[in-house]
Amino acid sequence: MNQPPVTKTNGIASFFGPKTINVAPSTKYQNLLEKIRAATTDELRKECDRLYIELYKLIRKYLALRQVVLELSQSFHDSRFYPFILRYPLLKSMVKRVLRAPAFSEICHEINE
């Protein structure tokens, strides 16, 4: 069995195995790079604007979902002082409120590509 010769690496590359460092870019990134090079300035501006709009939509969704989780967390911590028999319906209503929240339902029902 012939094994390839082991090359000695120095610096930070020595912490990673040979499979971790990939010198050649994948074909996916090569295709993306070719597409960007072939695009005109106007096409790149339109793509940049589209990506900015998509980014702001995602940030808005994230902040709305984060607010729902913070409210749930606060309600949960407030409910810890109740006995279990009274606490169970509270917890149940908290979960239902989160599942019916517009921010949560928007994310759960969107179509993933």
Rank of each mutant, 00 (worst) to 15 (best):
M1I: 09
N2I: 07
Q3H: 14
P5S: 08
V6M: 12
V6F: 05
T7C: 07
K8L: 00
K8Y: 11
T9Y: 05
T9L: 01
N10P: 09
A13Q: 08
A13V: 09
F15P: 04
F16I: 03
G17V: 10
P18E: 02
K19V: 03
T20G: 02
N22Q: 13
S26Q: 11
T27G: 10
K28W: 06
Y29H: 14
Q30D: 01
N31H: 15
E34L: 06
E34V: 05
K35Y: 02
K35S: 07
R37A: 13
T41S: 14
L44D: 01
L44E: 00
L44F: 03
E47Y: 08
E47S: 09
C48Q: 08
C48D: 00
D49L: 11
L51T: 03
L51V: 02
L51R: 08
E54H: 01
L55M: 08
K61I: 01
A64G: 05
L65Q: 14
R66M: 11
V69K: 14
L70Y: 01
E71T: 09
F76D: 14
F76M: 02
H77L: 15
S79E: 11
R80Y: 06
F81E: 14
Y82Q: 06
Y82D: 05
P83Y: 10
P83M: 09
I85R: 06
L86W: 05
L86D: 15
L90G: 07
L91Q: 05
L91R: 00
K92G: 06
S93R: 01
M94V: 09
M94D: 13
V95R: 04
V98K: 01
R100P: 06
P102G: 04
F104D: 01
E106Q: 14
E106C: 10
C108W: 12
H109N: 10
E110I: 02
N112V: 09
N112T: 02
